[in-house]
Design a protein around this nucleic acid. Structure first.
Length: 575
DNA sequence: CGGTTTTGACCCGCGC
DNA sequence: GCGCGGGTCAAAACCG
C-alpha cells in the first residue's frame, strides 16, 4: 500500500531526527506489522498519528543546546516537514476516499450481478417446480447446483466412510443431493466414479442460503443426477510450453497413460487442495500440434477455491453450464454436439493466457475461444479452445483436431434436431466474456479483484466489433448468459468480497487447513482485498507454487518449473 | 523425512 | 468370455 510506504518514510524521518521517539517508532512498526493485512482505512488511521508524534514528541533538550538562529532554522525545517507530512496525509486521505468509492461501486456491482443471477436461479426453480416432468426442456434454465447437500453433511459422510478413499468418494456421491437439470443419456445411470460436474463450481462459491435447492428430487433422481454430473468434463486447449497449465489449483499426479491415437502420454492429476476433493484433470499434448496442451477437468471441488483458481473454475463452470443447458434440451440417449466460436483471439503463442495475470495490470479479459461440445460419448465434454482465432480456417483445423464437426454451429443431436447459427454469428466472436471497462488509475491498481481475470493475450484489447458480437451472441444464448452470470458473480464475490482477512500465512498451509479464503455471507471470497503481500513463506512452497495466491499479480504467470501445480513428465514422454 | 513423481500392475467398462 | 483401452492404485524412486 502506498500509505504503508508513506508511513515508512515518516517513521524514518522521526527516527533519524528524533531519537527520543524511537521507542514509539518501534511501536509504530509493530502496529504496521499488525495492520499490514488490514485495509487501507486502518493504515490511514495509523498514519494520522505520525504528524502528532512529530509535533508533540520534539525533545526540548535539543533546542536548549542550540543558539537561537539554529534553533529557529531547525524549527522552520521541522515545520516544513510537518506541512509536507500534512499534505501527504491529505493525499492519502483523498486516496482513501477514492478507494472507498471504488469499494462502494464494486459492492454495488456485485450486489446487482448477484441479484440478477439469483433471479435467474429463482426463475429456474419456479419453472422446475411447476413441472413434474423430469426432463426439463426449458433452455433458459441454468441448473447450477451444489455437489453436496452441505459441508457439514459432507463431513459427516466422510466420517462415516473412512475406509479408504474409494469409500469416501462413494459416500460423497451418495451425498449428492443437488444436481444439474439435464439428462445426458441412459448410460448416466451407471454408478461409477465419484466425479460430479465441474459446472457446479459456480454454485460452490455462492451463499449457501441462496443456493437453489433441489430437495424435491427423489433419491433415484438424485442418483441419476449425480451419475450424470460426474461425467461432465471441460476441456481446455491452450498453447502452453509448460507441462501443465497453471490454473491456480494444486494438483498431484497419480498416473500416466499412453492413450490410443496419441503418442503423447496422458497424465492424470487429482486436486490436493483438499484431501477429499474429487476433482481430476487430465493433461495431454495435442497430437496434431505438440504445442497445444489439452487439459480436461472433471468433478467439483469440495473446498473453497483460491482466487487464482476461481478464474479457471468460473470459465469451465460457465462453459459446462452451457453444455448442461444444451444437453438438457436434447433427448436422452441421443448424442448431442455443438460448437461455438467464441472470442476472436489473435494469440499466436499463448502460454495459457487465460490465467496469466499480467503484472502490469492490463485490462483483464475473459476470452473463451472456439468451444466445442460433445456429449456423444459417456463423458459430455465441452472444449474451450484458446489456441486459434475463430475464423473459418480455424474450424477446419479444429474439426480434424477434435474429431467433432465444429464447422457449423449447431445444437444438434446425432439423429435429428439441429439448430444452427447463421454465418455472421458463426464467424463472430460468440462468447467473449469481457468484463472490462475503462479503468481509473486506482481501478487499474486493483483490477484483479474486480474483473474476470482471463487474459487471452498480454496486450490484446477487445475490438469493438468483438464486444458487439459477443453481446449479441450472449443475448442469443440465454443459457450462456446465465452461466456467465454465475461466473461473474463468483469473480465479483471473490474480488468484491469485503473480507479483509489478509492472512497470507494461510496460503502456505497444507491442504486440509483453512485456505486463504474467507466467507462472508456465505460467499467464498478471495481474501486479502487490496493486499499485495507476499504469499509463500517456505522456499519449497514458493518453488512448487503451493501457495495459492490471494493476489495473483506476481503469482500466476506460468511457471516453467516443475511444480506441484502440474508437471507432466518433463519431456521424457512429452515431445 | 515427508511429499511428489514415476511406472508397472491392476481394475473395470465396453465392444465384439 | 475375451481383449482392448481408459483410468486408478501403489510401491519404489526421487526431490527438497
Amino acid at each position: 500500500m502506498e500509505s504503508c510506504k508513506l508511513k515508512k518514510v515518516l517513521m524514518e524521518k522521526n527516527s533519524s531526527k528524533k531519537p527520543a521517539l524511537r521507542n514509539r517508532d518501534g511501536e509504530e512498526k509493530e502496529m504496521m506489522k499488525k495492520s499490514s493485512s488490514d485495509d487501507g482505512q486502518d493504515d490511514l488511521m495509523d498514519i494520522k498519528e505520525v504528524p502528532l508524534l512529530t509535533m508533540t514528541g520534539k525533545p526540548s533538550a535539543e533546542t536548549d543546546n542550540n543558539n537561537f538562529d539554529s534553533s529557529s532554522i531547525q524549527q522552520n525545517q521541522e515545520e516544513d516537514q510537518i506541512e509536507s507530512t500534512k499534505v501527504k496525509v491529505g493525499e492519502v486521505r483523498e486516496e482513501n476516499e477514492r478507494l472507498k468509492q471504488l469499494l462502494a461501486q464494486m459492492l454495488k456491482d456485485y450486489q446487482s450481478l448477484r441479484g440478477r443471477f439469483f433471479n435467474t436461479l429463482q426463475q429456474a426453480d419456479s419453472k422446475k417446480s411447476s413441472t413434474t416432468n423430469q426432463e426439463i426442456e426449458e433452455p433458459e434454465i441454468i441448473c447450477l447446483s451444489l455437489g453436496r447437500t452441505s459441508s457439514t453433511e459432507m463431513k459427516k459422510e466422510e466420517k462415516k466412510n473412512m475406509n479408504g478413499r474409494k469409500e469416501d468418494e462413494k459416500s460423497k456421491n451418495e451425498g449428492l443431493a443437488l444436481g444439474l437439470e439435464c439428462k445426458f443419456e441412459p448410460a448416466a445411470t451407471k454408478n461409477r466414479s465419484s466425479e460430479s460436474s465441474f459446472e457446479e463450481k459456480a454454485m460452490e462459491m455462492l451463499p449457501p442460503n441462496k443456493i437453489l435447492k433441489t430437495e424435491s428430487l427423489s433419491g433415484d433422481e438424485a442418483v441419476l443426477h449425480q451419475a450424470q454430473l460426474k461425467k461432465t468434463r471441460v476441456s481446455v486447449r491452450a498453447r502452453c510450453d509448460t507441462p501443465t497449465l497453471n490454473d491456480g489449483c494444486q494438483w498431484r499426479k497419480y498416473g500416466q497413460k499412453i492413450a490410443k491415437g496419441n503418442p503423447c502420454p496422458r497424465a492424470y492429476y487429482r486436486c490436493t487442495v483438499s484431501p477429499t476433493c474429487p476433482v481430476r484433470k487430465q493433461v495431454q499434448r495435442c497430437v496434431q500440434d505438440m504445442s497445444i496442451l489439452v487439459t480436461t477437468y472433471e468433478g467439483t471441488h469440495d473446498h473453497p477455491l483460491p482466487l487464482s483458481a476461481t478464474a479457471m473454475a468460473s470459465t469451465t463452470s460457465a462453459a459446462a453450464s452451457m453444455l448442461q443447458s444444451q444437453s438438457s434440451t436434447s433427448q436422452p440417449g441421443l448424442g448431442t454436439s455443438f460448437s461455438i466460436p467464441l472470442a476472436t483471439s489473435s494469440a499466436s503463442n499463448l502460454h495459457y493466457p487465460a490465467l496469466n495475470f499480467s503484472q502490469n495490470l492490463r485490462p483483464y479479459q475473459y476470452y473463451v475461444t472456439n468451444p466445442s461440445i460433445s456429449t456423444s460419448n459417456s463423458h459430455p465434454t465441452i472444449t474451450l479452445d484458446l489456441t486459434a482465432p475463430a475464423n473459418p480456417s480455424y474450424f477446419n483445423k479444429l474439426s480434424t483436431a477434435t474429431r467433432y464437426p465444429p464447422a457449423c454451429l449447431n445444437f444438434s443431436s446425432s439423429s435429428s434436431s439441429t439448430l444452427e447459427l447463421n454465418a455472421s454469428q458463426r464467424n463472430s466472436t460468440f462468447g467473449l466474456m469481457n468484463l472490462e471497462r475503462q479503468p481509473t488509475s486506482q481501478e487499474q491498481l486493483y483490477r484483479p479483484h474486480t474483473q474476470m481475470i482471463i487474459n487471452q493475450t498480454q496486450s490484446q484489447q477487445p475490438l469493438p466489433e468483438t464486444i458487439a458480437a459477443a453481446t449479441k451472441a450472449i443475448a442469443w444464448n440465454p443459457n450462456f448468459r446465465s452461466a456467465l452470470a454465475a461466473a461473474i458473480t463468483t469473480v465479483v464475490a471473490n474480488g468484491g468480497g469485503m473480507s479483509a482477512q489478509g492472512d497470507s500465512s494461510g496460503l502456505n498451509k497444507k491442504w486440509g487447513d483453512s485456505l486463504p479464503l474467507s466467507t462472508q455471507n456465505g460467499v467464498v471470497c478471495g481474501s486479502s482485498f487490496l493486499s499485495q503481500s507476499s504469499l509463500a513463506n517456505s522456499p519449497q512452497q514458493q518453488q512448487q507454487e503451493r501457495s495459492l495466491p490471494l493476489f495473483p499479480i506476481n503469482s500466476l504467470s506460468l511457471a516453467a518449473s516443475k511444480s506441484a501445480s502440474g508437471s507432466v513428465d518433463n519431456g521424457n514422454h512429452i515431445k
